[in-house]
Write a protein that binds this DNA or RNA. Structure first.
Lengths: 345, 345
DNA sequence: TTGAAAGCGCTACCAG
DNA sequence: CTGGTAGCGCTTTCAA
């Protein structure tokens, strides 16, 4: 591995000029720049990361803490990790993984030895121990997800409340007066933050709109197709003509099967919309309207905030809600009516 | 963040003595060591990672390349990532994530700028481009999984052949003379390396044992409960009394449902064994014997090899097969007989 | 527009 | 058993 010294010699300039030519932090004449770039190519020079870290003030590494609990939804989680890594690279940052017990201890460690410039927190639990940790350490920390106590924290998340309210509005606007929400598994309402937010928003908005609201889960501890179907069946029998789904992919699939088996059509007889899904609802047996959870949106913003925390205008603590987007696949129509024209927004 | 210089002054010793006291690379009297440790505590000293990297010859970071393709089985993959990270930490190593396009470009980058000491390769495809890359770079690289061309590579993987052969043997030894294999989805036989290994070993061993063998998939592109059920049904109707499962959890669940619906009992009427599963087969509707894929086993070994590659006796290129283990849950018995006593091995 | 040189904080060699 | 110090390879003043 060639060193900057060799590049300087080969280009016939000083070390500092090479450094500046590469960083662009000081104007360099086109002629010398060309010579330097040539030498860099020739020698296959790449600045040593360790030296760069020590001399500069940045390691260009973010820590990503993810406990990877047993009950974490793996596909969704993977999407968040991917989105974070990609976003970080766009800002010339690498991502260091802090999993398992290291999710906590590692935060202390990497902040103490200066291995990372900032920390991104994934898989946030309501009473997450990393919240207190984040307050103690000096390394900028951004939460992707919202814990109970967000005091002094920088958090990013989809606006689940707005997303759910929007879903209710879409159904109410179409004329539905009785709607149901098939939520997550029961345990999710303790272990995660967003399921309660969706449920609360559902009841709040339906009340505001003066329409009937029923709620059911999609399982106890684990996702259950049977439970999900039963929940949906109960709602339909009680007269619900609109369904808001906030459950796992297989639960949604089974609910669509239930609808079909009852001889009901979507959207002519039943309108359906999914909230907070990170899978493709268009690939279900019946394409379903969706107000999705978009990992990329949250992760991009989180990385942006982390980067910003490193310059002179660090972001204010507080929650940044990512605005929901609505993707129509024609699964909403007036009750007992023909499908409306497809739209996007 | 306190520096070594301050610790030295506080303890009334030289910088080098502090360094040696902490690294243990040179004997230090108990008295001075105590003073140093006290000073370290007082000041909350933690050696700066960047400086350590630059001065020492190690970054104490491993790269983990994982393309995170769309068709990667997320839960299994997550288990591998976790196991790798934990194993690395045990050797005082951190893990840097290289995902997406960076899975390849990143390998070049981190090897060029010396960011990592070794590279661990996950999610290995048969014609994985990282194979050629690994040959070009100087950074030690360990594959967790086996590509087609392993020439010059260090690879680690479960011995799927032995695992499958063992499964066949268990059934044959119990007296079964007609067995079936429900494999993965069709596309998996091109995108992954191990499914063909399992299938080939299944046919080879059944031939050796002189028993009838049938094979079926569990879907085309995506896992299909229907297809899996149909495959199993076909085998049972053809007279198979033993089933080897090498498919997704939901496919296995649906096969057990098929068996139950036919009024067949496990293991009295049908013996079942799972090969290469990374989920808990005891949690299925009927606990099923298993010769599992244990991420920890492969990852521990891979990390061990990576660490070893950094000292003076680097490991020989070649494939390290992890020996399979058999976990009995009593789902194998002689055909048309009572269940045998449960055993482990 | 360029160069010289002082660190960044630690490791490990050379002395004692 | 301990101390002094020369780097590790780069960034960034300070000078020209």
């Amino acid at each position: 591995m060639a060193k900057i010294h060799e590049v300087a010699k080969a280009a016939g300039v000083s070390i500092s000029t090479v450094s500046y030519a590469l960083s662009g932090k000081r104007p360099v004449s086109d002629a010398t720049r060309a010579r330097i770039e040539f030498a860099v190519q020739e020698l296959g020079y790449s600045p040593n990361a360790s030296a760069r870290m020590l001399a500069g003030r940045r390691t260009h590494i973010f820590a990503l803490t993810e406990p990877l609990r047993k009950d974490t939804h793996a596909p969704t989680h993977m999407a968040f990790v991917l989105a974070t890594a990609v976003a970080a690279r766009r800002h010339d940052y690498d991502v260091l993984l802090l999993t398992d017990e290291e999710a906590q201890a590692g935060m202390r460690r990497v902040t103490a030895n200066g291995l990372v410039d900032a920390i991104l927190v994934l898989d946030v639990a309501p009473d997450d121990p990393r919240v207190e940790l984040a307050r103690q350490i000096s390394t900028p920390t951004v939460f992707i997800g919202i814990p109970n106590d967000t005091d002094g924290l920088v958090c990013v998340d989809l606006d689940f409340e707005a997303a759910t309210a929007r879903a209710v509005d879409l159904l109410a606007d179409a004329g539905h007066t009785a709607v149901g929400l098939v939520g997550q598994v029961e345990t999710a309402y303790e272990k995660s933050n967003f399921p309660p937010r969706v449920r609360a928003s559902f009841f709040a908005r339906t009340a505001e709109r003066g329409i009937e609201a029923t709620y059911g889960t999609s399982g106890g501890k684990k996702v259950s197709r049977t439970t999900a179907r039963a929940s949906a069946a109960r709602m339909l029998e009680a007269g619900a003509t609109g369904l808001v789904l906030h459950c796992a992919e297989e639960a949604q699939a089974s609910i669509l099967a239930e609808i079909a088996e009852r001889g009901l059509r979507v959207p002519q007889d039943v309108s359906v919309i999914t909230v907070g899904a990170s899978f493709d609802t268009a690939a279900l047996s019946i394409p379903v309207d969706s107000i999705p959870l978009v990992p990329q949106a949250s992760c991009d913003l989180a990385v942006e905030l982390a980067v910003q925390a490193l310059d002179d205008t660090p972001p204010e603590p507080g929650i940044r809600f990512v605005a929901p987007t609505y993707i129509s696949h024609g699964s909403i129509a007036p009750p007992g009516d023909r499908p409306a024209a497809s739209s996007r927004g």
